[in-house]
């Protein structure tokens, strides 16, 4: 089966689900109207339930965590209930085999009921056992991925208010701070000796990145560097639209300068191996490496002003 196409994954998933449901509805309709075979409502419901479970368990790669699959499966069940019980006719049809089993008026339904009466409590006890049995796996940890930043941060003796500070190197040809300079030069060659100051700073930032950061954050800035999988969780993936792209440049400045030890108490326990880079880099070097990271990922830093 073909995999998910890079860059199209979210839409592809929705399209595939749409296709599965369309085939299901069309198939049921053809069977019913053209061939006179009516699939009982209960069976249709069971089919949708299993199809959903199969899709999320086996189709999606890498595998989804159980918590997410559980949420999805509950939602699929809710959807099935809404569908079968939306009209009285369908609801009666759906309930009919269940009630027949509970009434047990035929030998077949009697046997089904007897088996269910044994299997259901056994499954419940089995699940209870699995849940309660001591396990060697580490417990689930709720991490707060976006820590709330302080109002200001002090780096190398200078105070930077996070709401108002600006990168000294995000400057246009006139030497003025500009939110648009990156857009204008995103395709430029950083090694061009005639490049504007902004591109020279990007290049220097890149050098700093490859001397210090890429071991963990990766040469594609995707959080999969040489050492990445020695950490748990692995380092931040800057190409993800949920990381750098969501943040103000000053927020990243704070995180780089203060590293894991500088994280606020409110989200404790933090699991970050990030060193406080202010102990190794100058303020200017920190700003430059951030400049490079934004330039390389093509995401502009978040701003709060009007565009």
């Amino acid at each position: 089966m073909p995999g998910f196409i890079d860059g199209m994954m979210p839409i592809q998933l929705l399209a595939e689900l749409l296709l599965i449901i369309a085939i299901f509805i069309l198939g049921a309709m053809i069977l019913d109207k053209k061939m006179g075979i009516h699939i009982p409502m209960l069976l249709q419901a069971v089919f949708v339930f299993i199809a959903g479970w199969w899709y999320y368990k086996y189709r999606i790669d890498p595998p989804l965590p159980f918590s997410v699959r559980a949420i999805y499966q509950v939602m699929i069940s809710v959807g099935i209930f809404m569908w079968v019980s939306s009209a009285e006719k369908g609801w009666i049809e759906f309930k009919r085999p269940i009630i027949a089993v509970l009434d047990a008026k035929t030998p077949l339904t009697w046997w089904v009921r007897a088996v269910l009466l044994v299997v259901l409590p056994l499954s419940a006890s089995g699940m209870t056992y699995i849940n309660l049995a001591p396990s060697l796996s580490e417990p689930i940890e709720l991490r707060t991925v976006h820590p709330a930043p302080p109002a200001a941060v002090k780096v190398h003796g200078k105070k930077f208010p996070l709401q108002t500070s600006e990168s000294p190197f995000r400057i246009d040809e006139n030497g003025e701070y500009s939110d648009h300079v990156q857009d204008a030069h995103v395709m430029d060659n950083p090694f061009d000796p005639d490049g504007i100051d902004y591109m020279q700073n990007v290049k220097e930032g890149g050098e700093i990145f490859f001397q210090n950061c890429h071991f963990c954050h990766g040469d594609n800035l995707n959080g999969r560097g040489l050492y990445a999988f020695a950490f748990n969780p692995i380092p931040a993936n800057f190409t993800d639209p949920g990381t750098l792209a969501q943040l103000q440049e000053t927020f990243v400045f704070w995180r780089v300068a203060k590293g894991g030890p500088g994280l606020p108490r409110e989200g404790f326990p933090w699991a970050s191996a990030m060193p406080p880079w202010e102990q190794h880099l100058t303020t200017e070097e920190i700003w430059k490496v951030i400049l490079f990271e934004y330039w390389h990922t093509k995401y502009p830093p978040r701003t709060w002003g009007e565009e």
Partner: peptide
């Protein structure tokens, strides 16, 4: 959720806090 509830084993299998498909 953007950040999912998962065991460390699941986290490793997934290769990061954000899932490349549904994380979006």
């Amino acid at each position: 959720p953007h950040t999912m509830v998962m065991t460390p084993t699941e986290l490793k299998e997934m290769g990061g806090q954000q899932h490349p498909v549904v994380g979006n």
